[in-house]
């Protein structure tokens, strides 16, 4: 199997994620789409590591995972807080910084 297929997959996953971020209103779904994009990027990193035969891409993938974990913590906390105050998790409802 050609190694380029991994890159195609990565591109497809990223595109799905990006489209999801743009068209979905539900904050949780948007969030998952962002995760999808991050993982697509991870896949690309790992693939490139394999192509180039060094470990740098894999190291970056680890960093990405750590950042994604932190992001999930903060992001979910924000979503929960917004839901508590607005009774909605639609990102369009949160278009103002004030209430």
């Amino acid at each position: 199997m050609a190694i380029a297929n991994y890159l195609y997959l990565s591109a497809i996953l990223f595109t799905i994620g990006a489209v999801g971020v743009v068209i979905r209103r539900n904050a949780i779904v948007v969030f998952m789409c962002i995760e999808l994009m991050l993982n697509a990027a991870n896949l690309a990193f790992v693939t490139f590591a394999r192509i180039n035969g060094n470990l740098q891409g894999q190291v970056v993938a680890f960093f990405t995972m750590v950042v994604a974990a932190c992001e999930v913590v903060v992001g979910l906390a924000i979503i929960v807080t917004i839901y508590r105050s607005r009774r909605s998790i639609s990102v369009d409802d949160a278009s103002l910084l004030k209430r």
Binding site: A18, V21, V22, S95, L96
Partner: peptide, 13 residues
């Protein structure tokens, strides 16, 4: 600058 996160995301893309 409409405050809609999704439109910002679209612009970024």
């Amino acid at each position: 600058q409409n405050g809609y996160v999704r439109s910002y995301a679209l612009l970024m893309i």
